[in-house]
Design a binder for these strands. Structure first.
Ligand code: ZN
Ligand code: ZN
Ligand code: ZN
Ligand code: ZN
Lengths: 130, 130
DNA sequence: TTGTAAATGTTATATTATTACATACCGTTA
DNA sequence: TAACGGTATGTAATAATATAACATTTACAA
C-alpha cells in the first residue's frame, strides 16, 4: 500500500489538467489554461509541479521542459523513469518495462557509483510517423 | 575513420573553454567567459553549442541545462549518451559502458518503436560525497 | 568567378524558472 | 480551545535560458 497524497487545491487543478491532456504540457501553457480557475502566477504553477513531480504523479520530460502525467500506476515515486519521444510529432509515452527498470536500477558504474535515480529518454519515430 | 570536423573560430573558442573546464558549463557562463574574445551575444554561443552537440564534441546535460565536453573518444556523434550526476556536488561523468550502450541501442519498446537516439542520466552520490 | 552553404554579427524578444516576502490553512498536541 | 509547526497560497519582481529576424561575411567547390 502506497502512501496516499491528498492533493491541495492548486495541485489538483494542475494535475487534472495535465492528466486530461494525456501529453506533455509546458508550464506557461498550464498557467494559461488555469487562469480562469484563479491561478495567476508562474510560481503557483511551478510549486504545484514541483510537488507533483516529487510524489510521482507527473514527470518532467527534461529534453522538452514539459510535464506529463504518470502513465504507470506503479511508479508513485519518480525515481526511475523512461520515455519514448517521437522527434516528428513529439508524442511521448512512458515506458514501463520491468526488464529495463531492473537492468538500470542494478547498473553499477565502473567508478563504483551506485545510483538512486535515473531518467532515460529515447528518441525516434513513432509508428504513425515512420 | 571518423569525419574530421574543422571547427570554426567561435566553435573552437567555445569548445576549448568547455573542454578545459572538464565539467558542465552553462550557456551564460560560457558567454561571460568568452566576451574578452569578441563573442558578445547569447546567440553566438547557442549557435556554436548547437553545432558542437550535433557533431558530438559536447553533450547537453538536459537536467542541468549545461554542456560538457565528450569524454569518450568513440562517440563522435551524439546519439547514445549516458551520464552520472552527483546530486550533492554536481560532478558529472560520461558513462562509457559498451554493455549498457548495446543494451539500450537494442532496446525495443513494446509499442514496437525502434529508437535512433537516447539520453540517460543517472543520479546519486559520487564517491567523495557518500 | 560565381553560386551556395555555413558561419558570423547585432538587436530585440520569447520562454522558462526563481527570489523574496506576506499571509492563510491544516493537523497535531499542550 | 489555543498554540505551534509544517505546508500551501498570493503577489510582485526579476533571473536564467533560449530563439526570431535580419543583415553581412566567409569558406569552398563547381
Ligand atoms: Zn511514471
Ligand atoms: Zn510521431
Ligand atoms: Zn560522448
Ligand atoms: Zn559528489
Amino acid at each position: 500500500m502506497q502512501k496516499q497524497h491528498n492533493l491541495s487545491k492548486n495541485q489538483k487543478i494542475i494535475f487534472d489538467l495535465i492528466d486530461k491532456a494525456g501529453e506533455p504540457m509546458k508550464a506557461y501553457s498550464i498557467l494559461f489554461n488555469v487562469q480562469k480557475k484563479g491561478i495567476k502566477a508562474p510560481l503557483q504553477v511551478y510549486r504545484a509541479l514541483d510537488k507533483l513531480v516529487e510524489i510521482g504523479k507527473i514527470h518532467k520530460i527534461e529534453s522538452r521542459n514539459a510535464f506529463i502525467a504518470c502513465q504507470n500506476s506503479n511508479c508513485q515515486i519518480s525515481k526511475a523513469t523512461a520515455f519514448s519521444i517521437c522527434e516528428n510529432c513529439e508524442k511521448v509515452s512512458e515506458i514501463s518495462s520491468s526488464k529495463l527498470s531492473k537492468y538500470l536500477s542494478n547498473f553499477v558504474d565502473h567508478s563504483g557509483m551506485k545510483f538512486s535515480k535515473y531518467n532515460l529518454e529515447f528518441f525516434g519515430l513513432c509508428k504513425n510517423c515512420k
